[in-house]
Amino acid sequence: MATKTDRSSATAIGLDWMSVTLVLGGVLLLYYVAPMVTLLLSVPTSDVVAQMSDPVVVSAAQTSLLAASISTVLATLFGLPLAYWLARTDGFAPKVILAVVVLPLVLPPTVSGIVLLTVVGPGSPIGTAAGSVGLPLTRSLAGVVLAQTFVASPFVVVTAKSAFESVDRTLEYASRSLGKSRWTTARNVTLPLAGPGILAGVTLAFARAMGEFGATMMVAYYPRTMPVQIWVAFKSLGLDSAYPVAILLVVISVVALLVLNTVASNPWE
């Protein structure tokens, strides 16, 4: 009995593989959790609350929330149709297009910023034209939105694509054979069934947009978003003054995580 021999030899060592995974994994887990706890413990709660009402912090929070919301809406508006197309088209073209979609995910954010500046920067034709009609695309809310959308929208496309793919095509054929158009079918059958997955993509995009720093720095240093504000505070006044905004961002991240694990379907589960 080969299996019996194997089992007894494993116990002979005294440590089975599951215990090893637990110990090694535990080290990593501790490395994630400990900094969060020390961050929350490093400033008295009263200080944090007091600093929350600082106009600079309030303004950064407003900019971040507004810009990230707009970016998320834009990413969803343009990302969902692309995700549907990618999920329902066979052949080589979708593979190439998916690679293009994933590009902003793997590109270093500062490089994304540089790439964007070549298109919407003050010297570029589009940047100049927009500036002349009073809608500058850099150092403006529009700039923040452009940077965030570029970096965050792939999350909507990639996650919604797998959500659409998880909807059995037979259900769509069933709907169409009942005389319903592609659009009616998408609205009544595919979208509701892919809903939790789409929500996951939207949540991830929002979380990514909230945290966007590199590309935003390059394209729109002003108005300051929370990540930029953290950096500015850290550079000019030191670590302590960066804590409140950082804690605020941790809270937002935790809320996003809660959404992912409750109403949305966590794509990594």
Partner: peptide
């Protein structure tokens, strides 16, 4: 013609009922 314009009804193996 697309499926929706054929007036052909089809019943699939597992029923393909809309689960929601």
């Amino acid at each position: 013609r697309p499926p929706e314009a054929r007036r052909v009804g089809i019943v699939f193996q597992e029923g393909a009922l809309f689960p929601h």
